[in-house]
Nucleic acid binder design. Sequence first.
DNA 1: GTGTACATGTAATCCGTTACATGATTCC
DNA 2: GGAATCATGTAACGGATTACATGTACAC
Lengths: 221, 221
Amino acid sequence: MLGLLSFPGERTGYDLKKWADASLRFFYWSPAISQIYAELRRLEGLGYASSRRSEPDEPRAKRRYAITAAGRAALARWADTSEPGPPVLKHPLVLRIWLGHLAEPERLATRVREHMERTRAELKEIRDALARADAHDATGGGTGDGTGATGGGTGATGEGWRHPRIALRWSERHQLAELELAEAMLADLAEPHPPGARAPTEGDRADTGADTPADTAPTDG
Amino acid sequence: MLGLLSFPGERTGYDLKKWADASLRFFYWSPAISQIYAELRRLEGLGYASSRRSEPDEPRAKRRYAITAAGRAALARWADTSEPGPPVLKHPLVLRIWLGHLAEPERLATRVREHMERTRAELKEIRDALARADAHDATGGGTGDGTGATGGGTGATGEGWRHPRIALRWSERHQLAELELAEAMLADLAEPHPPGARAPTEGDRADTGADTPADTAPTDG
DNA sequence: GTGTACATGTAATCCGTTACATGATTCC
DNA sequence: GGAATCATGTAACGGATTACATGTACAC
């Protein structure tokens, strides 16, 4: 949350939700809206965020949040003290494959194909977001996120949005990789029964291993 | 848990933990040991698993669990009724990149490199597991998992372990992809400042997009 | 005889979700 | 006038973790 607020501008909980869904979601998180409101209140309690009610002449009553100096300090401390942990992945499709003995081969393959469909849809969303971001700063765009929300108007164009864009590009490539992985798995599944045959899977399995060639395999003797 | 038990053989909670850490971990889950014990008791309560105390002549007192017919039925129902949801990813490194404006460029790059190191280590573990699985069924291996645990000795060789191996192969490729993604990100980070320059990033960004070829180039103008 | 692996649990807590509740505004 | 979107919350619950507690067996 603090990270979202660290970009220039003030935002409502609702804004943050939409923004998170269009960016953080692809590589980290898509918080429930209820959690956002709760967290914003908590952050304000800690002195890391400040909020302001909307002017009475505004059409809608809302509460806009911004990060405070203390919040910025805490965030900066976090950002360069704590190590980024390993990525956490929960992949229900691969789990199903792992449990493949429970299903008919046909259904398994169908599942993989469905997954690929979903992945393509996701990829499209990411590309849309990327396009939006580009258009946004080509026109010299407005607010403070890439979504096109309404709000303050600090007008920090181009620069500052560099890193979010890099992350989004990572997400794009990630989805592409996901498609390739699914395809490879489909091929593995299609392979004839295992009796003896240790199919070489083409010219696959190259290097990219550890540093030294000789490695004396520590784990298994 | 039921899925783990669906493979032939009886196992203790401790066995399951080790096994999960050597397989499920790479694509789905690494449950806390305390949760495993709790869950096993719950499953037994539901009639989905049965347990047996070790014989008094065994060196250690332990409790071995097996899946029941009801458990198998419930699992099968789950496996082909419920849709596998989308994969859930929580990638702290990419989050740090997204928040790159908070850090010095140097530190960011270092983080990415550290991540690559970790990824290579992970990749090695996966390959070891794969090698272990191969060796295991070449020798006509024993128990009921790929880890080399002790236990029953139902002796289901080769077949039945096909799908776990496919999942593991997926994990191997996944880590390779992760390395490539990190490298690409490193390149993005190294790119000169954004003022105007919209660097084309080489002959990258091929097809694999949606269905139609003409797509009105969303990402880059 | 000391450290590691085996083996099983309890208690407190956290992060996050779903379901529920409410109401204003805008678009068609 | 009705649906979608904007906007904010409360309550109950769930999955999972960490910290704590305990004890045996084996290897060096």
